[in-house]
């Protein structure tokens, strides 16, 4: 994937952090916790929506700079060329565990018809498409730790192949007891509630995304800013690297924010994955640096 695309919009939602938290070079967006998502999104349509879905909707809402409780788009406002790619490993795991448990304990009638669509792995992606009327390709990736950059790479591919004119990529993971238990077993520590959104377009104003590719010469996830003669420095994404399926998208959103706001940064390299699942990297250039020179 040699031809760059442009990161035109981004947002980061870390509702577990105290309001007003900032990091060097960037700051998370102000969002309510999932149970109060209606304060940002408007209440209508949120009934039975899970925390991960609500977080993803908040991230897209912020990325597009919509006002609080903005009117929903109507059926005639469909964007057929806008694709949605979601990365989430644990997005609906609490619903699935609850459904499985209740059916085992109480029988088939314990399964709520409202819960049934939430048990489908693609519920976040399709809900984002329905909410914002995005009618392009609609994908959900759950590839473990590299999943976030898998999703960004998939979005890149959708643009290069001409299958979409705009791709909304969201990485999201919920924080609940089920997710904590699974992630602690897998990694030794619980995750964080996080949603990050980046919007990719073939051209426009923003930060160029040069490539997303597998990488082998690394041992751990990291995000590093290249400041030219001033050296390199590691960036804090606010998740302590515990964003799991959301981490790669979070890294790219932070990279886009930093290269845009800090004129001293020439590019940012993001690497996510794990030793057992492999690593991927993304290179985000500065809007001020000529393409290909980063």
């Amino acid at each position: 994937m040699s031809r760059p695309v442009v990161l035109t919009r981004w947002a980061v939602c870390l509702p577990g952090l105290p309001p007003g938290t900032t990091f060097e070079g960037w700051a998370p967006d102000d969002v309510p916790p999932p149970e109060r998502a209606g304060e940002l999104l408007g209440r209508k349509g949120l009934l039975a929506k899970e925390p991960a879905t609500r977080l993803a909707l908040c991230a897209v809402h912020r990325a597009f700079g919509l006002p609080e409780r903005a009117p929903r788009r109507t059926a005639s406002d469909l964007s057929p060329d806008t694709a949605v790619v979601i990365s989430s490993n644990l997005g609906n795991i609490a619903t699935v565990a609850r459904l499985s448990t209740s059916v085992r304990e109480e029988g088939v009638r314990a399964a709520s018809p409202l819960d049934a669509p939430n048990a489908s792995g693609n519920v976040i992606a399709s809900t984002v498409a329905i909410w914002f009327r995005f009618g392009g390709p609609n994908l959900t990736v759950c590839s473990g730790h590299p999943s976030g950059l898998d999703a960004v790479g998939l979005g890149h591919m959708l643009l290069l192949s001409g299958r979409a004119r705009r791709v909304v990529v969201v990485g999201v993971e919920p924080r609940d007891a089920t997710a904590d238990a699974l992630l602690t077993d897998a990694t030794g520590e619980p995750g964080v509630a996080v949603a990050a959104c980046v919007v990719l377009e073939p051209e426009g104003v923003g930060a160029p995304l040069h490539e997303v590719a597998p990488v082998s010469n690394t041992e751990r996830p990291h995000v590093v800013a290249d400041r030219g003669d001033d050296g390199r420095s590691e960036l804090d994404t606010g998740s302590d690297g515990r964003g799991y399926g959301a981490e790669g998208v979070l890294q790219v959103a932070v990279a886009a924010a930093v290269v845009t706001d800090d004129p001293g940064v020439r590019s940012v390299t993001a690497v996510c994955g794990s030793r057992t699942e492999g690593f991927r990297s993304a290179l985000v250039g500065s809007p001020r640096v000529t393409l290909g020179a980063a």
Binding site: S120, G121, N122, A125, P137, N138, L139, T140, V141, C142, S143, D150, L154, M157, P214, E277, G278
Partner: peptide, 20 residues
């Protein structure tokens, strides 16, 4: 050793996978 991806787009998932 190439890319290894799981796509969870429900009942059309393998057509999405084949497309990618």
């Amino acid at each position: 050793h190439g890319e290894s991806m799981t796509i969870a787009t429900a009942c059309s998932a393998s057509n999405y996978a084949l497309g990618y």
